[in-house]
């Protein structure tokens, strides 16, 4: 479970997050939706702990990111916006490095890497150096790297960026699969279809504020819009009118 509790973050004159609160529950895919520059990445960075909030608190399974950072971080798999790999290492070495940094070793680490290679279908390229990977291959390895310690919570920042249709489908299937294992999945997107196809709950943010937080159907109902896209636009217009 991932909790954002009144998170505030300022960069100079810009309010990137103003009292952002929501809960992403276990066994659910929660979508953070918003236009470019709405504060999605900042919110996620506060949640996986590379940024510290000015006020408010991020909690992972009840553990405070501020006070129990080590334990909280160990329960997250994060896939940041630009999830670079080490070009001179093979995919397998990239994954194993993160496993080792998470405290795994020996046969257990080897088995964990093997399981992910099979699950994410990395076999064909995982023993090649990462410098020749396609964008799709890079994202798959970065995802495997985020999953190496079998985290209960997964945070993905625009994971489908730059992927082709087939790769997007595979990724969705994988996320649905991970949900069925009871994990808590939080992903951000500015693509409406992606969120509506996948998410159980949608948090819409604009200008650093939460303007809607509900199941997709409920959002449709509340805004009286025919499609989520229309609802998204309406919610944002309202937010823009009352900043």
């Amino acid at each position: 479970m991932i909790e954002a509790d009144a998170l505030c973050k300022r960069f100079g004159a810009v309010d990137a997050a103003r009292e952002i609160s929501f809960v992403a529950s276990d066994g659910r895919i929660t979508g953070l939706l918003g236009p470019n520059g709405a504060g999605k990445s900042t919110t996620l960075r506060l949640l996986y702990g590379v940024l510290q909030p000015d006020r408010g608190e991020a909690r992972i399974d009840g553990l405070r990111m501020a006070g129990e950072a080590g334990a909280a971080r160990a329960r997250i798999g994060a896939l940041p916006h630009s999830a670079g790999l080490y070009a001179n290492l093979t995919g397998r070495e990239n994954i194993a490095y993160y496993g080792a940094l998470q405290g795994q070793s020996g046969a257990a680490l080897h088995a964990a890497v093997e399981a992910l290679v099979a699950r994410l279908e990395l076999r064909d390229f995982v023993d090649r150096r990462a410098k020749g990977y396609s964008q799709g291959q890079r994202v798959k390895v970065a995802l495997a790297r985020a999953l190496i310690h079998d985290p209960a919570n997964l945070i993905l920042d625009e994971p489908t960026n730059g992927l082709d249709v087939m790769a997007v489908r595979n990724l969705r299937a994988l996320l649905v699969d991970l949900r069925s294992e009871g994990r808590c999945i939080l992903l951000s997107s500015h693509v409406m279809q992606e969120v509506s196809a996948l998410c159980d709950r949608i948090v819409i943010i604009a200008s650093g504020r939460v303007c809607a937080d509900d199941a997709p159907e409920a959002i449709l109902e509340k805004t009286g819009a025919a499609s989520l896209e229309e609802a998204f636009l309406r919610v944002q217009l309202q937010a823009g009118a009352a900043p």
Partner: peptide
């Protein structure tokens, strides 16, 4: 280099 490749952020999100 690590920052430019984008490998620094996931690294810093680890419990290390």
């Amino acid at each position: 280099g690590e920052r430019e490749r984008g490998s620094l952020e996931p690294l810093l999100s680890l419990p290390v």
